[in-house]
Computed example of a mutant assay.
Amino acid sequence: MIRPRRLPSVLLGIAVFFLICSPQGAAMAFFSKKEVVVGSPMEGVLSYKGKPASGAQLRRHLRWKDETGVTDTVVADQNGHFSLPAVTDSWRPLLPAEFVAHQKVYVEYQGEEYLIWTMGKMDESLYGELGGKPNDLICEITGELARVEVDHGMLGTVCRWSSIDR
C-alpha cells in the first residue's frame, strides 16, 4: 500500500515514465485531444439479386468508446445508390492505447434485414478501413459475407470494389 505522503511522488514517476518511454511528442499527445475517423464515408450501389435495391434502408452502427455507439441511416435512391458521411470523434488517451472501432452495416429491404459489412477498424485515419478510398463499391445484399484481407483490422463484407485510391 502506498502511503498518502508518497502518492504525489508515485504519480510524478508514472507521468515521467510515459513522457520518456512514449514515442513522438509524448508530452503533446499526453495532454491533447486526438481526432479519429470512426467510420469513413461510404458511397456505392446496393443490389438485390442483381437489380438495384431501390428504397433499401442502409443502417451503419459504429461503436468505439462505449457499448451504445452511434447509428446513421440513409435510403438508397431508385438506382440503389447510397452515400454515408464520415463519422469523426476526438479522444484524449491518458495511457498508451490502441484505437479500435466496431462497424456494422445492415440493409433492410422488402421486410428482411441483411448484414453487409462487419469490421474491427484499427486505423484511425480517413479510409483506414481499406487503406484507401474504394472505387465502384457494389454491395449485393443477398451475397455471402466474405473475409477480406486488410492491413489494419478484420473485414467481412458482401461488397466489392474495382480499385482502391491510396
Rank of each mutant, 00 (worst) to 15 (best):
V10H: 05
V36W: 09
V150H: 08
F31P: 03
W64D: 00
V105T: 14
L62V: 13
A15I: 13
G143R: 04
R92C: 12
F82H: 12
F31Q: 10
P93I: 01
V38Y: 05
Y127K: 04
K33H: 05
R5V: 12
V148R: 06
D72N: 13
G69W: 05
G111T: 00
Y114W: 08
E67D: 13
G153A: 12
M122I: 03
E43P: 00
G69Q: 04
E140T: 01
C139F: 07
G131D: 07
S163W: 02
P96K: 00
S32E: 10
L94Q: 07
C21D: 10
M119P: 02
G44R: 03
V105E: 11
A146W: 02
G143P: 02
A146S: 11
E112H: 12
D66T: 04
D66M: 03
G69F: 04
L145C: 06
F18V: 10
G120D: 09
S22I: 08
S162N: 15
G13N: 13
N135D: 14
A101G: 12
H61Q: 06
Y48G: 11
L19N: 02
K121Y: 03
Y127G: 02
V87S: 02
D66I: 03
L95A: 06
S90T: 15
S9H: 13
R6Q: 15
P4S: 13
M119W: 00
S47T: 15
K49M: 12
A29Y: 02
P23F: 07
V16H: 05
L11M: 13
A15H: 11
T142G: 15
G120Y: 02
T68A: 13
R59D: 12
Y109N: 12
V36R: 05
Q57W: 02
V100Y: 00
M42D: 06
E140W: 02
E67I: 15
D66F: 01
R59Q: 09
T157L: 08
E124Q: 07
V158D: 00
I2V: 14
L46P: 08
C159Y: 07
V10A: 07
I20R: 04
G131M: 06
I14T: 08
L94V: 08
V87Y: 03
P41F: 10
W161G: 09
R3C: 12
A56D: 06
P8F: 13
P93E: 02
G13Q: 08
A97M: 03
E108V: 09
D136K: 10
V100I: 08
E67M: 14
L7M: 14
L94G: 12
M122S: 10
L12M: 03
P8L: 14
E149I: 09
G44K: 07
E43G: 13
V74W: 01
A146I: 04
E98A: 12
E129W: 01
D77R: 11
R5S: 09
K65V: 01
R5H: 10
L95C: 02
A56Q: 06
W117A: 03
T68K: 14
K104W: 00
V100C: 02
I164E: 11
V75Q: 13
S54K: 15
K49H: 11
I141S: 01
R63C: 08
W91L: 05
L7W: 03
L58G: 09
D165I: 13
S83R: 14
L95F: 14
A15P: 00
S40M: 06
A29E: 07
S125N: 11
D89T: 02
D77S: 11
R59N: 11
L94S: 05
Q57M: 11
P85L: 11
G69M: 05
E144Y: 05
L62E: 07
A27M: 03
W161E: 06
